[in-house]
Design a binder for these strands. Structure first.
Length: 328
DNA sequence: TAGGCCATCTGGTCCT
DNA sequence: AGGACCAGATGGCCTA
């Protein structure tokens, strides 16, 4: 069964516009090489036709000879090429639109400072991982570990951006005499959430990022955060390449239900997973209590992590405001 | 100025 | 035949 393919259904006027654009670009192509190639090709065809004959004018080769392109046929080929170019542009625009949509739902969306395509994909993957682990753990996540998970395999600028979203920076990380990471000061978010004792992260539970050049990576390896399973073991083998290592973790997130993220555990509530999307929702309403019908978060006032995730009424540790910070 | 990122063109391949 | 998809090539733009 062939995969369904993207069907270009751009309006005719768009095609016409694209044709105009294409023909303009074809003639004054910013890519001289492309024009060169086209000329080469047409020359080659001419050569082929000539090479088909020997000095006596008899055909040298057997088999189908290339049909000589009549001017009408040439025109048609040209038009088809232009249409194909227009479709290709449209297809790539669609791809970019989808990528833009993805940018909006991963942390640190900014209209002014856009993540690159590759960084968007990496961050999205990390984000899914972090959320999945949060849900599977069923407890409040460590904020730093969460951020570090997000930063896995990201380039330093992106890592800085993500960290910056939470106003984290390298000053928060120092290495103590045992080679274990510790904090020299309260992280800024601790100041913000000073009423949450759990945000005292004097005992970091994060783990090395596998990237020594990034801000968060600059610390010595942390005690591995309890991500459990393959994910943890994976992260305990950091790549020597720090800038943008190929972060190829397990192929699928730890929790997946019918293609929709859901709970790992044998829990009747997991049935909800069939119809319910778990994860961080990006409610445009910033108010805590006004997250809407589908909101899954509520603010916890009791613990070390100031956010609770509620999945259909079930409390789970979560990060409503963390997302708000990311998506400011 | 080098390197990263991106848009575009292009030809090949596969599928309908 | 034609469309979708893909990867390579190329040049433009931007930034450190």
């Amino acid at each position: 069964m062939p995969e369904p393919r993207f069907t270009a259904n751009f309006p005719p006027e768009c095609v016409a516009e694209n044709k105009k654009l294409a023909s303009k670009k074809l003639d004054a192509s910013p890519n001289p090489k492309a024009k060169e190639t086209r000329e080469e090709n047409s020359e080659k065809e001419e050569e082929d036709r000539e090479d088909d004959q020997d000095e006596n004018g008899l055909p040298k080769r057997k088999g189908a000879r290339k049909k000589k392109l009549t001017s009408g046929r040439q025109e048609r080929v040209k038009v088809r090429r232009q249409e194909a170019n227009a479709r290709e542009r449209s297809r790539m625009h669609g791809l970019n639109d989808a990528l833009e949509s993805l940018r909006k739902v991963v942390p640190c969306y900014s209209k002014t400072q856009k993540l690159s395509k590759i960084e968007t994909l990496r961050l999205a993957k990390n984000y899914i991982w972090a959320l999945s682990e949060t849900l599977s753990a069923g407890k409040r996540p460590d904020l730093l570990a969460f951020v570090q998970t997000l930063c896995k395999g990201l380039s330093q600028p992106t890592t800085n951006l993500v960290a910056g979203c939470l106003q984290l920076n390298a000053r928060n990380f120092l290495t103590d005499h045992n080679g274990e990471a510790s904090f020299s000061a309260r992280p800024p978010y601790d100041a913000v959430y000073a009423s949450y004792p759990g945000s005292e992260t004097g005992t970091p539970t994060g783990h090395g990022c596998g990237g020594g050049t990034s801000t968060l990576d600059s610390a010595k390896p942390f005690r591995p955060y309890s991500y459990g399973g393959s994910y943890e073991s994976f992260y305990e083998n950091p790549s020597p390449e720090c800038a943008s290592p190929p972060f190829e973790g397990p192929l699928s997130p730890p929790i997946n239900f019918n293609g929709i993220f859901s709970l790992k555990h044998e829990d009747p509530a997991a049935e909800y997973g069939k119809t319910c999307h778990y994860g961080m929702r990006y409610c445009p309403v910033p108010g805590r209590g006004s997250l809407g019908q589908t909101s899954m978060f509520a603010v916890s006032t009791d613990g070390h992590f100031p956010y609770d995730l509620h999945v259909r009424g079930q409390p789970y540790a979560a990060q409503d405001e963390l997302n708000a910070a990311f998506h400011n």
